[in-house]
Design a protein around this nucleic acid. Structure first.
Length: 485
RNA sequence: GGUCCCGUGGCCGAGUGGCAAGGCAGAGGUCUGCAAAACCUCGUACGGCGGUUCGAAUCCGCCCGGGACCUCCA
């Protein structure tokens, strides 16, 4: 099915076609591993995951998906510095080597990040590569040399800057978001004094070494410039190295349009001479209870915070799919609860489909709902419309009444749909006996026997006890289901 | 100060000129010893005020409220 995507470059919906037949090359701005990722970060990665899954399942493409790990920047340096309050015992001992400290610090949060995305069902095996910035220092330095050689970079006080005024003479700057320098907010962060750049809009490609900070040797035109890469550099270099330019899709949060992505385009074009990406796809932010997430408002959550509060990461995944990715998502606890119920209802439906069909079962047209649901997903990942169509079908199609062939087709469609949504189990109901303590199972069995003997008072008392232990009993016609509450 | 997005029933959330999707909650019912689950049925919602139009949630203006970006925040 043909996919259409909203492209930030053109500000409109465009039909998507990969540059190489059948293969989509896609890059996602990943986390800076200086702390646990919060759910706002997670939205960005879930949106990218949704896109790559839709490309695979609905578009029928192979996807080569790269997401970087930023393990060198101001925040990671600060966090790993000697005496940092952010240093944790799990990271080991701090050493005399700033680079080694940085490595220990960032690996810790990288590991946490990998655990977090795994819990959200962002699959490691879907990622072609998860490159660390510090492992691409060479290609970054090479890019700086190219930029300078082409006359778009200059050295000042040990750092290398991108010369925007020179760049503006040969190319358009401000393709993703027009920025009018005449109307810069008074007091906006320009910290012109901090560096020796010629224009405040010039951005740093390579930052000169500061005492006590990690650095790499760098020789540029015979000059020794020990230091570390600028923010935007890693993406350009990794895209070039891992995907090749130009590639198909670049994703990230909406805040990255400017300056990060704008500068990335300028760098890649200036250095490699190639406009790096055909499609820029940006997701809107996540708010909490209608407010911007902030630590001072007390509405700042990491995934770990939410899990500690008893939320299921898959309910969070499902909840985030209920809104379109280009609109702000209002994260609420009530919303996650609603998502949990809706998700459970579909799971129940799937279980019913696995049960034996009645002899005079109904036959339904599954191809139509598939076309409708996938059609909405193909239309700029319109998950709300896709789910509306899906639930409309569910409401009109009671699982218990379907014939065997319809069930088979429907389960096939659901397993395809679940390759995208990934929050259900396409399997018969299995009493997960191993997850339930033996004494609870015994109580449930005892209660069932009492119930058969019509000793209801005693049976109900046991049911109470079981419920207090955190399990619920659902009676069926000739048996019961025992599951965690 | 500049640029831009959003405001739809109790909550979430589609719809961008022609009788307002869907989810959750709520109400009633079926089934069940009761409950839970499941299933069926049920909605006088478009922030405010003007304007354009035969017709506006949808276009235009103003106002109110929330949010974003404006040089290292996803």
């Amino acid at each position: 099915m043909r996919i259409e995507l909203f492209n930030t470059l053109s500000h409109q919906l465009e039909p998507f076609e990969p540059l190489q037949p059948k293969l989509v090359r896609m890059y996602t701005c990943g986390p800076t591993v200086y702390d646990y990722a919060h759910i706002g970060n997670m939205r960005a990665f879930l949106c990218a995951d949704l896109l790559q899954r839709v490309l695979r399942v609905v578009g029928g493409y192979q996807v080569r998906w790269v997401m970087n790990i930023t393990d060198i920047d101001d925040k990671t340096i600060r966090g790993s510095a000697p005496g940092s309050p952010l240093w944790r015992p799990e990271m080991g001992e701090q050493t005399d080597d700033p680079l080694e400290n940085l490595r220990r610090y960032t690996r810790f949060y990288e590991q946490a990040f990998l655990e977090d995305i795994a819990r959200l069902h962002i699959r490691r095996e879907d990622l072609f590569a998860l490159p660390r910035a510090t492992e691409y220092i060479e290609p970054m330095q090479e890019l700086v040399r190219r930029i300078v050689a082409r006359g778009f970079g200059y050295v000042a006080a040990g750092s290398v800057y991108f010369d925007l005024s020179a760049w503006r003479q040969v190319a358009r700057y401000g393709r993703l978001l027009p920025i009018d320098p005449a109307h810069i907010k008074p007091g906006a962060r320009v910290d012109a004094d901090q560096y020796e750049r010629e224009e405040v809009s010039d951005f740093v490609l390579w930052k000169g070494r500061k005492p006590g900070e990690p650095f790499w040797d760098f020789e540029l035109n015979g000059q020794q410039l020990p230091g570390r890469p600028g923010w935007h550099l890693e993406c350009s270099a990794m895209e070039y190295t891992l995907l090749g330019l130009p590639f198909d899709i670049h994703t990230g949060g909406i805040d990255l349009r400017f300056p990060h992505h704008e500068d990335e385009i300028a760098q890649s074009m200036a250095g490699y001479g190639i406009d790096p990406t055909r499609f820029w796809v940006h997701n809107e932010f996540l708010e909490v209870e209608g407010q911007k997430m902030s630590k001072s408002l007390g509405n700042f959550f990491t995934l770990r915070d939410l899990i500690a509060r008893g939320l299921d990461p898959l309910d969070i995944r499902f909840a985030l799919l209920q809104a379109h990715y280009r609109l702000p998502f209002n994260f609420t606890f009530a919303g996650v609860e609603a998502a949990r119920r809706a998700r459970q209802r579909v799971q129940e439906y799937i279980y019913q489909l696995h049960e034996p069909a009645p002899p005079d079962g109904l036959s339904v047209e599954v191809a139509a709902v598939r076309a409708e649901v996938f059609g909405h997903l193909a239309q700029d990942l319109h998950t709300p419309k896709a789910f509306a169509a899906f639930f409309r079908f569910l409401n009109a199609t009671p699982a218990a009444e379907l014939d065997a062939e319809s069930r088979r087709q429907l389960l096939h469609f659901l397993s395809e749909f679940n390759l995208i949504v990934d929050v259900w189990e396409i399997a018969p109901r299995t009493p997960r006996q191993q997850d339930i303590p033996a004494e609870i199972r015994e109580l449930a069995e005892k209660r069932w026997q009492l119930r058969l003997q019509r000793r209801y008072a005693e049976a109900d008392a046991l049911r109470e006890r079981i419920q207090r232990a955190g399990y619920v009993i659902k009676d069926l016609r000739d048996g019961y289901i025992l599951e965690p509450l």
